[in-house]
C-alpha cells in the first residue's frame, strides 16, 4: 500500500516533468515534417535520431563525449581544489578577506568564456587553454560559496567549542567545516554546471573533438542534424550531471532534512 503510493508519486512527478518537453517534441515532429519549420535549420526527428544513431554505431560519438568529459573532469578537479583552498584561507582570516575583496569584486564579473582568446594566446591552442577555461569557470562559484560558508559559522556553535576548551584544529574540523559544507556543496554544484557550459564554449571556438565541436562543425558544414546532436547532448549531460550532484549532496549533507 505504502510502496504503491510511493510509486504513484514518482510516476506523477515524472509525468509532470515530462509533459511540456513531450508537447515540444510533438510540435517539432509535426512542424518539421510539414515543412512549417525550415528543414535546413530544424531537421526532422527521424533525420536527427538517424544521424545520432549512425554516429554512435561508428564510435565517433563516444569519442566526442569522452573528450568533453575528460576536459570537464580535469578542469573541475583543479578548479574545485583551488576554490576550496583559497576560499578556506580567505574565509578564515579576515586580513586575507580584506586584502582580496576588491580584487575578487573586480575579476569575478569577467566571464571565463570572455577569456578564451587570452588563454589561446598565452597557453596555445591545445588542451591546456581549454582546461584553463573550465578551471576558471568552476573556480569562481566554488570560491565565493566556500568563503561565505566559512565566514558565517553560527557564533553560538563556536561558543560551544570555546566552553569545552577545544583546540583551533578541532573547532575547524568539528564545527566550521561541517557548517560550511552546505555552502561548499552549492558552490560545487554551480561549479560543475559552469564547467559544462565552459567546455562547450571553449570547444566551439577551438577544438577538433568534443560536444562543442559538434555544434560548430554542424554549423560550418551546414549539417543541422550534427548541430542538434551537439545541442541536445549538452542539455542531456548537463541534466545528468546536475542530478548526480544533487544526489551526492543529499548524501553528504545528510543532516538537513529534505535538502534539495
Amino acid at each position: 500500500m505504502n510502496t504503491d503510493f510511493g510509486l504513484n508519486k514518482h510516476l506523477k512527478s515524472f509525468l509532470y516533468a515530462i509533459w511540456i518537453p513531450a508537447i515540444l517534441v510533438i510540435l517539432w515532429t509535426i512542424g518539421s515534417n510539414t515543412r512549417v519549420l525550415n528543414n535546413s535549420i530544424f531537421p526532422t526527428p527521424q533525420k536527427l535520431f538517424g544521424a545520432w544513431y549512425e554516429m554512435i554505431i561508428s564510435g565517433k560519438y563516444l569519442t566526442h563525449v569522452i573528450s568533453s568529459f575528460s576536459r570537464v573532469i580535469k578542469g573541475f578537479f583543479v578548479g574545485s581544489i583551488l576554490g576550496i583552498t583559497l576560499g578556506t584561507i580567505i574565509g578564515l582570516f579576515s586580513s586575507a578577506k580584506k586584502s582580496t575583496v576588491a580584487l575578487i569584486g573586480m575579476l569575478r564579473p569577467i566571464p571565463a568564456i570572455a577569456l578564451i582568446p587570452l588563454f589561446i594566446l598565452s597557453l596555445g591552442i591545445g588542451e591546456t587553454s581549454k582546461v584553463a577555461v573550465i578551471v576558471l569557470g568552476s573556480f569562481w562559484p566554488i570560491l565565493i560559496n566556500t568563503i561565505a560558508g566559512l565566514s558565517t559559522t553560527d557564533s553560538k556553535l563556536l561558543e560551544v567549542g570555546t566552553i569545552f576548551d577545544k583546540s583551533k584544529r578541532q573547532v575547524l574540523f568539528n564545527i566550521i567545516f561541517p557548517s560550511a559544507a552546505p555552502y561548499i556543496f552549492t558552490g560545487l554544484r554551480l561549479g560543475v554546471s559552469s564547467s559544462w557550459t565552459c567546455v562547450v564554449a571553449a570547444e566551439m571556438i577551438a577544438a577538433s573533438s568534443g560536444i562543442g565541436y559538434l555544434i560548430s562543425y554542424g554549423r560550418e558544414m551546414a549539417q543541422p542534424a550534427t548541430l542538434f546532436i551537439g545541442v541536445f547532448s549538452m542539455g542531456l549531460y548537463g541534466l545528468l550531471i546536475e542530478l548526480l550532484v544533487i544526489n551526492l549532496q543529499k548524501k553528504a549533507i545528510y543532516w538537513i532534512p529534505n535538502s534539495k
Binding site: K156, L157, E159, V160, I163, N174, I175, P178, S179, A181, Y254, W255, I256
Partner: peptide, 13 residues
C-alpha cells in the same frame, strides 16, 4: 567552568 546553554546548541550534523 561548564555551561548548559539556554538553547540546546547541538551540532546538527
Amino acid at each position: 567552568i561548564g555551561v548548559v546553554f539556554q538553547e540546546p546548541r547541538l551540532f546538527p550534523w
